[in-house]
Design a protein around this nucleic acid. Sequence first.
DNA 1: GTATACATTAATGCATACAATCTTCGAGAT
DNA 2: ATCTCGAAGATTGTATGCATTAATGTATAC
Lengths: 235, 235
Amino acid sequence: MNVPIRKPKTTSGTRSESVYAGLRRAIIEQALMPGDKLPEDIIGDRFGVSRTIVRAALARLHAEGLIDLQPNKGATIAQPSLSEAQDIFETRMCLERQVIARLIEKVTDRDIERLEQHVALEMKANAHDGPAAIRLAGEFHILLAALSGNGVLARYVNEVVSRCSLILALYSRPHSSDCSINEHQQIIDALRARDGRTAIDAMDHHLQAVTDRALLSSNSEKHRDIRSILDRYAS
Amino acid sequence: MNVPIRKPKTTSGTRSESVYAGLRRAIIEQALMPGDKLPEDIIGDRFGVSRTIVRAALARLHAEGLIDLQPNKGATIAQPSLSEAQDIFETRMCLERQVIARLIEKVTDRDIERLEQHVALEMKANAHDGPAAIRLAGEFHILLAALSGNGVLARYVNEVVSRCSLILALYSRPHSSDCSINEHQQIIDALRARDGRTAIDAMDHHLQAVTDRALLSSNSEKHRDIRSILDRYAS
DNA sequence: GTATACATTAATGCATACAATCTTCGAGAT
DNA sequence: ATCTCGAAGATTGTATGCATTAATGTATAC
């Protein structure tokens, strides 16, 4: 055997991959909302594949906590409880602190440049107020984790950040992301200066702000969990 | 065709679950070694299910990093590289520190008792030197994570601990786990005393010991990655 | 008028058939 | 003998059909 060129180590064929990617993007951009049903044949029709492929994609989304999968009842966009939301935020903070700790040691000028470019993208998307703004805000953190060089860490950050989109959709009111972008810039600045203390503080503050925006406004009636609503109207 | 042991009546979803659980245990107990191939037909025969079910189980194992899945070539037990191994250990330490931090706050006497019982199990399994000893050593950490009450954290700890079994199988020599058990006991003692500093130190020391046993003995020719061997004979 | 039982519909659970792809092995040429 | 090409076998990729289950609609009994 010659030099091993690592091929894409993802799951089977690129077909379930594209269904997975499409659904994931729809969820993260909040085109599909928590509680929405995901019938296999409808998805299969839209993507031009059979239910077999769709099921593989759904299984993966389920493994990542983005959808619920009830036996004989099918898939729905996950509705994290407040308790789960707190678990996710706590774990996310734990993981992202480690990301920052690694980046302080090894971040390069080229990395900084990519981060700056990303924030520029965020600002542009924010100006047009497109659905991509939400996604890009999360992808900033995913990019940070990827640049940390620890693939395992990066995968977990990817998951918790994605699930945070669900939490925001459920519990938060429509938010202007301007402050998020400023905070992202602060993190970059601290990384550039190799100032670990400030970088971690900035990340902590940023995540705390996101958490508060999500969980403290949970009085908002935005979520679609009918049961908890009906409970209040049943008596 | 072999006789399907599974009863055909019970609502499925449990079926791929049992295939997943069986394969996972075989991997963690090192009955299946890194690099081994996992043909869908053979697995399906042994478990008395069709390839459809097997593929679901394999997809889940892949999502958890226990098997590699190459397109058109099937599944093999994952062979983490040294780099991946380091990533896993680093992430594991990050996560388990958080587990300890939580437990210091909320661990109950009943929790302590369950942990003590588990260590007793470990000692017994170690005496008989059965394949369960390896698994139980890991499950101590999974139990800790479960008791922490953060389900997300628990899931990630479960994954990294499981993957550590792979790393040990690849790079470590057969180890006596006695010291591990002693270290587990130290962690319990520190938790009982609500001594956070000591508990975290004990966990750090324990994981560092495991890491060293795994990675520093990587000169051992035990692993099956032909390339790294050839590299030393090619020049 | 209400509630229970039954029929209908729709969706998922699963196995299997077939297609696409990789692997192996042998024949023929150099 | 070695290399190349190719055909046969083996394994995975995908679609589809049938069985099973949940959800819904309807009728009948009280």
